[in-house]
Design a protein around this nucleic acid. Sequence first.
DNA 1: GCCAACGTTGGC
DNA 2: GCCAACGTTGGC
Length: 137
Amino acid sequence: MQYWLVKSEPDDYSFDQLRQDGRTAWDGIRNYQARNYLRDMALGDLVLYYHSRTGLEIVGVARVVRVAYPDPTATKGDWSVVDLVPVKPLTTSVSLKTIKSIPALAEIQLVKNSRLSVMPIPKEAFHLILQLGNTQT
DNA sequence: GCCAACGTTGGC
DNA sequence: GCCAACGTTGGC
């Protein structure tokens, strides 16, 4: 089991939207590093859902229900998507500010590389974030 | 809304 | 193959 984090602008596709839809293909990734991480995702992996730009906080947990396949929205190039379903929203969302203030979390790529939109999260960091969010899986 | 950081493109 | 120019992302 691996743990991940994906970003979305809530104005574009929010966690609430994912809950309404029940399932979505995580399409539109056009960055090689992010794409390669998508391809590393396994069935059942858990994914933190982060709202960028106008949220700046982790708001929920999702799960991988289909591993990487070709992105149907890509007209050229070699891009992939995975399918995600919502697991649950965090009871308390965990802000970027909070994450930055905690030494154990300050090294995750969310902080180190703010432009990366799909990234792995160490197991300990994942569980700490859930703890901060008063949420159990 | 601004702009720094990063990735990509293309001229040489 | 280098690197300047450009486009995009996302924190502030």
